[in-house]
């Protein structure tokens, strides 16, 4: 296989990953690393570098569409980005010290957890909804558009959300993924933010988090242009196509299908990590 064929195959694989990732809301990044490492035999560090780049591309591309709809909350996002960027720098530094087998195993576990989280129905937690003192001080409470008009929401448990975001950032830096699942968990479950707001705000933050890790990866020489090029262009085009058909697609079946693929990839990552093949 020469570079031209290799590039086209990786571009096609990334296109499908980006398409399914955006269609199912799981993000294409989660399957890029296993795809490159398991199917193409790429060293996991190069794979993570290329994946990070694609994460920035899809996040920024999607965020551009989301912000205009008025769901995302810039204040919540910016405040939590302190935690995610700090975490990302820690994670990216860890990546150089931890063996690739360990990274593969952690990757597999996070994949399974992400698939599990996204398979559960997401319901907004309706509570007595007393404003939180810290959230009020930080002016995080806001409103979002619904069919019945603007809905006001209050933000809670900022320290817990902040800590979870630090973990999300660390995983993102270590594994080269957006770790959107952990971010959404922090915002939905801990901070009790309505899920439309948490999904878009999380997506908004993923790009900044990934940029923090990508800087470190670039300086380390983990980002290879020849490999990152087809991955970035493929995932980006795939996710743009995915958002176009979002409305009409039978998303439940697709989610289960993509969830199944992720589970298989996760088990393979763990197996190959444990046997020292990655």
């Amino acid at each position: 296989m020469n570079i031209l064929e290799f590039t086209i195959l990786i571009w096609l694989g990334s296109l499908v990953a980006g398409f399914l990732g955006s269609l199912t809301g799981l993000g294409g990044g989660v399957v890029i690393v296993p795809l490159l490492a398991l199917m193409f035999g790429v060293d996991i560090r190069y794979a993570i570098g290329a994946s990070l780049v694609s994460v920035i591309a899809t996040s920024s591309g999607a965020a551009a569409a989301y912000v205009k709809e008025g769901y995302s909350n810039i204040r919540i996002g910016m405040f939590l980005e302190i935690a995610t960027t700090l975490g990302a720098l820690v994670g990216a530094s860890l990546a150089a010290r931890v063996s690739t087998s360990v990274i593969a195993v952690i990757f597999g576990v996070v994949l399974i957890y992400s698939a599990y989280l996204s398979s559960r129905p997401r319901l907004d937690i309706i509570s007595d909804d007393q404003p939180d003192l810290l959230a009020t001080r930080l002016r995080m409470d806001a409103s979002y558009p619904t069919p019945e008009g603007l809905q006001i929401y209050h933000v809670h448990a900022i320290p817990a959300g902040f800590s979870l975001m630090f973990i999300a950032g660390t995983l993102s830096g270590l594994l080269g993924i957006g770790s959107g699942a952990v971010k959404v968990l922090a915002m939905d479950q801990a901070m009790r933010i309505p899920f439309k707001v948490s999904t878009t705000t999380s997506n908004f933050m993923i790009g900044v988090t990934a940029a923090a890790s990508a800087g470190v990866y670039l300086n380390r020489g983990y980002i290879d242009p020849g490999l990152a090029m087809p991955v970035m262009l493929g995932v980006l085009l795939g996710s743009v196509l995915g958002t176009r058909v979002l409305v009409s697609a039978p998303s439940r079946l697709l989610r289960m299908l993509f969830g199944g693929v992720i589970l298989v990839l996760a088990i393979e990552m763990i197996y190959n990590g444990l046997t020292g093949r990655l």
Partner: peptide, 26 residues
């Protein structure tokens, strides 16, 4: 990417062993 494929498309890819990028690309 187009420049890269035109100039290097016929050579073989080598990503199995990690070497890291040269200093100028870092």
């Amino acid at each position: 990417g187009v420049l890269y494929l035109v100039r290097h498309g016929a050579t073989s890819p080598d990503y199995q062993v990690f070497r890291g990028e040269p200093a100028d690309l870092r």
